[in-house]
Amino acid sequence: MKPDVWHIGNHELTSRFFIGTGLFPSPYVQREAIEASGAEVLTFAIRRINLEATEDDSILQHLQGKSYQYLPNTSGASTAEEAVRIARLARASGLSDWIKVEISANDRTLLPDPIETLKATEILVKEGFTVLPYTSDDPVICKRLEEAGAAAVMPGAAPIGTGLGILNPYNLGLIVEEAKVPIIVDAGLGSVSDVTQAMELGVAGVLMNTPVAKAKDPAGMARAMRLGIEAGRLAYLSGRISKKRYASASSGYEEFKLK
């Protein structure tokens, strides 16, 4: 079997698991989980440095010695303007020109603001960023983001951190059918069955943080998710059977039944 590679822009990927770096109980557990996940892309947030405790060093020091593609996000932004500012700061780090546009419109649901997300995507694409917007699971907005030049589009399965799984598999299926860029399910997944379902729907990858970081055994869960992604992907490529209302025997040989 030839390797199942895929691309974001010109960047070739083999793993379909993007893993977030928040909420892990310790840097050691985080590193173990990242290794177990097989992920090649790691997400981060951008925040002010705590000037009272600068020896409390950056998260990056714990990831040295391995090469990852970094995907900083614009979390904390509630407008396109704020997201663009965070994106420019992230790129000035010299670590990555990828940006996950994340613009939340509501503190309780953290649901994305699709209009601001589209505005930010248009600006950042013009500035040469590789833009991966996190947005709602709406086929029309996903298409609009693709047309605006997004390198991949990342619809949410459910609100961030809820672990509710895919609330609208019908929409997600439509989004995949229409897309010419990779679709990555971002946010709201909780279990291996959720990620397998996402991959069976034909998405190119999944982005997860909380379901791994907050599991009892994050490294164990990271590996389980990795296997679930592989299983779902292989099932998608292999083609599931269609559903039938009534039984059909699997043995056959109807005329040779013992009488």
Partner: peptide, 10 residues
């Protein structure tokens, strides 16, 4: 002046 860095996030 803003001094920022990467922190854990999803």
């Amino acid at each position: 002046i803003e001094l920022v860095h990467f922190v854990g996030g999803g």
